[in-house]
Nucleic acid binder design. Sequence first.
DNA 1: GTGGTCTAGACCACC
DNA 2: GTGGTCTAGACCACG
Lengths: 130, 130, 130, 130
Amino acid sequence: MFFAIDPSNGLAIYDQIVRQVMFAVASEALRPGDLVPSVRDMSRRLAVNPNTVARAYRDLLAQGVVATVRGTGMEITPQAPQRCREARLRMIRERLAAVLLEASRSQLDTGDIRGMVEKELAKLERHKRG
Amino acid sequence: MFFAIDPSNGLAIYDQIVRQVMFAVASEALRPGDLVPSVRDMSRRLAVNPNTVARAYRDLLAQGVVATVRGTGMEITPQAPQRCREARLRMIRERLAAVLLEASRSQLDTGDIRGMVEKELAKLERHKRG
Amino acid sequence: MFFAIDPSNGLAIYDQIVRQVMFAVASEALRPGDLVPSVRDMSRRLAVNPNTVARAYRDLLAQGVVATVRGTGMEITPQAPQRCREARLRMIRERLAAVLLEASRSQLDTGDIRGMVEKELAKLERHKRG
Amino acid sequence: MFFAIDPSNGLAIYDQIVRQVMFAVASEALRPGDLVPSVRDMSRRLAVNPNTVARAYRDLLAQGVVATVRGTGMEITPQAPQRCREARLRMIRERLAAVLLEASRSQLDTGDIRGMVEKELAKLERHKRG
DNA sequence: GTGGTCTAGACCACC
DNA sequence: GTGGTCTAGACCACG
């Protein structure tokens, strides 16, 4: 499990943590019963204030993705995989829809847009392989 | 020229205004010499605080997209079209790349992503016609 | 609208704030569209750290009881009254059920319990009048 | 003697243990001279960390409800029954008063409250029989 | 060791 | 002025 924070992401740090944990659950890198890294551990790994991690974990708690086990840590709940898979798709779809809407409003036709998408996908493929 | 603000967009309101003005210039809905709607007019049309519009216009001024004409208002500059066309593609490509990167990181393969793109494009088409 | 914090309540301060706002909505002391006291104002009134108030408001936001109006404050949502009325009853019922369960487990019969309830209710009545 | 832990009870686990032991004494399910289950035994039965049970027993020791018998375990003291009977009513009355106060503050009138109490008592009766 | 709460104070974006 | 985020550091309850 690798987590990485990009401070110039626009997204708040705690939100990046939330999303990455949910994505890790959705992709089964984290499974129900697994312990999430402790607040202190995670804060060291990400070079981030422990309160920021705690804030992220509180959000995950509220969403029922993790549950606290007193004195032990926080573990992935049984309902987490389903919720995270749904949430992952929803989050990506929302961002994608917003971008495509803007592109369409800016008079790009669907051909132009498809072209940009393909170009960016190709770039990603190169990165993966490279 | 139709402007629309989506408060739950992630983007700041003033930023949405900036982008939409630039897109309007890029698509020649606004041409050099055209007057941009006054701060008051625009704020009424978008149901937004006038200061927010003023802030957006300040940004456009700084980018040389508009220029103030004493006693008249703000007009599109001669250099605006070129700048906006360049900026438009850059801005869209950046957002698109960010979304696709996230999608790819979340274990979606390029086929899934293309599927989502097509689905959203189809939705947009329906909206346009509807 | 009077809010009061009891530090020796067992309940966390932010939780007391959450509950009191929800109760105020449930009893129509706060109505949809009303602005909740600002974080800074509330923190002064309760002699509490602003972050603690912000934490409470964040919870109310997540529950859809308030919505932020940028640069203006946070206002009660249209859905808030229904949610708060339900939540109020649920919270009270849960606490009541827990106490009565304990009482029943401790071999008090329903007569004893009713007696205690009546005694406490009478005490409350005296306080109200007094 | 049946003990049951409800983790989502609001009360700390060790506190639930303390209260249940005292209630058992008050109702003469445990009598002076009886041995309390060993820390290990109790922790297995409740599926709880042994330290948590030890912490509860420490509290009971401090209150003079149990006393250590070298090489044997911990037994109920002669003074325990009187203390527990008094404490039991006090503890229940305190929790009850707190709940009723909140209910009353939330604009429920005494009729509503009595109604909720009766409903919950009926639920308890059903559970006992069922 | 774990998470939970609270305080204090900083900086930002937005209105 | 408003809320939102982040940092730093303290204290507590629990295991």
